[in-house]
Simulated scan of single mutants.
Amino acid sequence: MIATGDFPGRFGVDVGSGVRINCFDSGGNGLPVVILHGLAGSSREFAATAEALPEFRTILIDQRGHGQSTTIPDDLSREAFVSDVVQVIEATADTPVTVIGQSMGGHTAMLLAAARPDLVAKLVLLEGGAGGGSSAENERIGDFFRSWPVPFANTSAARDFLGDGPLARAWAADLKDEADGLWPRFNAEVMVATLNGLLRPRWDEWEIVTAPTLVVYAEAGMFTAQEEAEFIDRGRDVKRVDLAGASHDGHLDSFDSWIIALRSFLLS
Rank of each mutant, 00 (worst) to 15 (best):
I2V: 11
A3T: 12
D6G: 00
G9F: 01
G16F: 02
N22P: 00
L31D: 13
L31H: 13
V34N: 04
G38E: 11
G38L: 08
R44F: 06
A48C: 10
L53C: 12
F56V: 05
F56G: 05
T58N: 06
I59R: 10
G67I: 12
D74I: 04
D75V: 02
R78V: 10
S83T: 14
S83A: 15
V88W: 00
T98K: 03
M104V: 11
A109I: 08
L112D: 08
L119H: 05
V120R: 05
L123D: 11
L125C: 02
G129M: 11
S135Y: 13
A136L: 14
A136R: 14
G142V: 05
G142F: 04
F144N: 08
V150H: 03
N154S: 13
N154F: 07
S156R: 10
L162R: 02
G163K: 06
L175E: 09
D177L: 03
A179S: 10
G181K: 05
E189W: 00
E189L: 00
P201Q: 02
W206H: 14
V209T: 11
A211V: 12
V215K: 04
A220S: 13
M222I: 12
Q226M: 08
E227Q: 15
F231H: 14
A246I: 15
G250I: 14
S257E: 14
S257Q: 14
W258S: 09
